[in-house]
Amino acid sequence: MSRTTALVALTAAAIALSACSTVEAPAPAVPRAAPVTELQRPPGTIVSANSTARLGTVVVDGLGFTLYRFDGDSARPSTATCEGPCTETWEPVPAADPITAEGVDDEAVGTVERPDGQAQLTIGGWPVYRHAGEEPGATDGHGVEGKWFAVTPDGDKAAA
């Protein structure tokens, strides 16, 4: 058999075999995850009790940020008064369903409507906030201006 005849025979065999095999659809494209460039908050609102060396047990959000209450607000009735420039330093914690509380009595967890119409999380009736620029687990906002205090699971001020 000549070289050309052998090549033609092999090509014909390859075509015949490929015609007999099952045709598979191409695999679906797997979407690529966007790079994480900032902290992403989980869906809903998650709060939990966290033990600290300095302040005892305080409430943190789902990412570990300490939550604070403001003496200018009120618990009965729940009223949030930190607005405008105040919210640049003290970020109101939004209340989004579902609200999950771990180590915090479900009856202590609630919401209040802010002056801008948004729902804000409350602990023991007190609207709660995050201290801007703080790292998870930090408690630097406790005692600021004698009005801002880490909140305990029942809504009280943490003891320093």
Rank of each mutant, 00 (worst) to 15 (best):
R3I: 04
R3H: 10
T5Y: 09
A6P: 00
V8S: 02
V8P: 00
A9K: 01
A9N: 02
A12K: 01
I15P: 00
I15R: 00
I15E: 03
S18H: 10
A19H: 05
S21I: 11
V23H: 13
V23I: 13
E24Y: 12
A25D: 14
P26D: 13
A29H: 03
A33N: 04
T37K: 06
T37Y: 05
E38Y: 07
L39N: 10
P42T: 12
P42S: 14
P43N: 11
P43Q: 11
G44A: 08
G44R: 04
T45K: 04
I46Y: 06
I46C: 00
S48N: 12
N50W: 09
N50Y: 12
S51G: 05
S51C: 00
A53G: 12
R54L: 13
R54A: 15
V60E: 08
D61N: 10
L63Y: 07
G64N: 03
F65L: 13
F65T: 00
T66S: 13
T66K: 00
T66W: 01
L67Y: 03
Y68F: 14
G72C: 02
G72S: 11
D73G: 02
S74G: 06
S74K: 02
A75I: 03
R76S: 14
P77S: 09
S78Q: 08
S78R: 04
A80R: 09
C82W: 07
C82G: 04
E83Q: 14
E83W: 07
G84D: 14
P85G: 01
P85N: 07
C86G: 06
C86L: 10
T87V: 14
E88K: 14
E91S: 08
P92I: 10
P94F: 01
A95E: 08
D97M: 11
D97K: 11
I99V: 15
I99W: 02
T100P: 02
T100A: 11
A101F: 03
G103H: 03
G103P: 05
G103N: 02
V104H: 05
D106K: 12
D106S: 15
E107S: 14
E107C: 00
E107I: 07
G110S: 09
G110H: 07
T111E: 15
V112T: 11
V112H: 02
E113F: 01
R114K: 11
R114G: 02
P115R: 14
P115D: 13
P115Q: 12
D116L: 09
D116V: 08
D116C: 08
G117Q: 08
Q118A: 15
Q118E: 15
Q118P: 00
Q118I: 01
A119S: 14
Q120W: 04
T122N: 04
G125W: 07
W126I: 02
P127K: 10
P127F: 12
V128A: 05
R130V: 04
H131L: 15
G133M: 06
E135Y: 06
E135C: 00
P136H: 09
G137N: 06
T139L: 06
V144G: 00
E145V: 15
K147W: 05
W148Q: 12
F149Y: 15
F149G: 03
T152R: 12
T152E: 13
P153I: 03
P153G: 05
G155K: 09
K157T: 12
K157F: 08
K157E: 11
A160G: 10
